[in-house]
Design a protein around this nucleic acid. Structure first.
Length: 259
DNA sequence: AACGGCTTCAACCGCAGGGCG
DNA sequence: GCGCCCTGCGGTTGAAGCCGT
């Protein structure tokens, strides 16, 4: 979409970037024909080897673009349609827990992609929180409310107490979560009700069974290169060192909340 | 109907991390 | 240990669509 038909260059250098740098490489929105070629090829050959996939599939796209298109649009498990209220609620709570770790949040919401959730957050939820006088980065009330007219109660849920220390994972540039940071933060939460706001909807999503299921998924989907469909992200999460069983965030969270 | 501002979201960019020789 | 390659992630961009005038 961006710079359709143009080539990308490294910032300020004028040298082509490795991706999409070849002359004749197509950019911008995908056509239905390209979608069909990519989808049928991935169904046949499986995911992976994205770098060489365009050549093998006969697509004039870079591997990165193919991967993104598949992950965010063509995967059969992708759920279409608007974000449901319960999904929105879950996103809010997971974001408070995880910060801008969109892929992890998406891993907890079946059929939704990290890109979709990221977009939804930036276009809807962050604005909604700001309207309510809540800092979307910290999930705490603004010290000085941005708007005096629409100011509501400090939290959207009366049962929900703002966290005493939110995940400080927001910085400029690429942002990789720090497990120790997360643990330190979770360790300072006043209690289980603070952590998950004593919310039945959240409880219904985050259950002990989910962790068992995701662990199993991890074992299955990381057994080979054919990491297909949404469950891969769940497995990825459980394989994330930050979330590993040896003192990882989810382990601590699980024990903390479920005893 | 035409126009301009605003919003949405698909797609791209740059970087980090893991695997491998 | 080092460098290369590949994949995945989060941030950013801008075309397309929406909406008010």
């Amino acid at each position: 979409m961006r710079h359709p038909g143009g080539g990308s260059t490294s910032a300020g250098t004028g040298t082509p970037t490795p991706c999409c740098s070849k002359i004749g490489m197509k950019r911008g929105p995908w056509t239905a024909e390209e979608d069909e070629v990519l989808a049928s090829f991935v169904r046949q050959e499986g995911e992976g080897r994205w770098r060489t996939l365009p050549k093998r599939a006969g697509l004039l796209r870079c591997g990165k673009s193919c991967r993104l298109r598949w992950m965010n649009y063509l995967r059969p498990s992708i759920k279409r349609g608007p974000i449901a209220p319960d999904e929105e609620d879950l996103i809010l709570r997971l974001h408070r827990l995880l910060g801008n770790r969109w892929s992890l949040i998406a891993g907890r919401i079946p059929g939704r992609t990290d890109n979709e959730i990221k977009n939804y957050w930036n276009t809807h939820l962050s604005k909604k929180l700001i309207k309510q006088g809540i800092d979307p980065r910290t999930h705490k009330p603004f010290l000085t409310a941005p708007s005096t007219t629409t100011q509501s109660s400090p939290t959207e849920n009366p049962n929900c107490t703002p966290l005493q220390q939110p995940p400080q994972v927001l910085s400029s540039g690429t942002n990789h979560f720090n497990a120790g940071n997360a643990l330190g933060w979770s360790g300072q939460v006043g209690g289980a009700d603070d952590f998950f706001c004593n919310d039945p909807i959240f409880d219904s999503f985050i259950t002990p069974e989910m962790f068992v299921q995701h662990d199993n998924n991890a074992a299955v989907h990381h057994s080979g290169s054919d990491q297909i469909l949404g469950n891969n992200r769940h497995g990825e999460m459980m394989n994330d060192p930050s979330f590993g069983l040896d003192g990882g965030l989810w382990e601590h969270t699980f024990q903390y909340y479920f005893g």
